[in-house]
């Protein structure tokens, strides 16, 4: 598939996301935040980093960048979109996903290999996994604490829209240990940890993260 990776000013992990998508067998199309086009891609990844220096609130300014117009339209029409870390924050600020990400409860930046449990393996980004499967991928954030009101949290859990949870001690204070969620339609996924840093044996904690990128084709093949 043709997978677009958006680069915002301050994106850090766009090249790793491109590399992960390439290793997963996709044709990667770099997208620029300032261009109001998705160049006909089949799916989009919003990468991690500190877009616009995290000014105002993380993702608050990126949300209004030109590329987000067509992206919100495409996501609403069902295009698979994955937001990782800062990308997750952008998706929440855009209201494509509910809730928000706030400063870690312990006030410190966290950087570690993190065990996750895949709770929803039916999305275009998690279909390569089994429900309940545990994976280890890097986690690195300062404002990764997922918050939402109780009704939203209940709805996310009851509708199976919690995509992944943290296993073990909660690394950032996220409510209900939520590491990733999806929208009602299941095509938009936001994830705080970084699967794109765990796709090769040479570096990172292993290759557990690759499934997030192979899932696109796994799902297409299953249809």
């Amino acid at each position: 598939m043709r997978v677009g990776v958006v680069t915002f000013p301050g994106s850090l992990d766009d090249v790793d996301a491109q590399r992960a998508a390439t290793i997963a067998g996709h044709d990667v199309v770099p997208l620029w935040h300032g261009d109001a086009t998705l160049s006909g891609v089949d799916a989009v990844i919003l990468p991690g980093g500190f877009s616009y220096g995290d000014y105002l609130r993380c993702g608050a300014i990126s949300r209004f960048s030109p590329v987000m117009g067509p992206l919100v339209d495409a996501a609403t029409d069902g295009m698979p979109v994955l937001g990782i870390c800062n990308g997750f924050q952008v998706l929440c600020e855009s209201h494509l996903l509910p809730g928000a990400l706030v400063r870690n409860d312990h006030q410190r930046f966290v950087c570690r290999d993190q065990r996750l449990e895949i709770r929803n393996a039916a999305t275009p980004w998690t279909a390569s996994y089994e429900p309940g499967q545990q994976v280890v991928v890097p986690l690195k954030n300062g404002e990764g604490s997922y918050v939402a009101d109780t009704a939203t949290l209940d709805a996310l859990e009851n509708e199976g829209r919690v995509v992944a949870t943290y296993v073990g001690p909660n690394p950032n204070g996220s409510l209900r240990a939520i590491a990733g969620i999806t929208n009602t339609a299941g095509n938009v996924v936001g994830l705080m940890p970084h699967p794109e840093h765990a796709v090769e044996d040479l570096c990172g904690p292993g290759t557990d993260g690759l499934g997030f990128f192979t899932s696109l084709t796994a799902l297409a093949a299953a249809l």
């Binding site: 706030v102 400063r103 870690n104 409860d105 006030q107 604490s145 009101d149």
Partner: peptide, 13 residues
Amino acid sequence: MPKPEILDPQGKA
């Protein structure tokens, strides 16, 4: 201001 029910780690610090 952060909503009253939202944890404010900066204020706490």
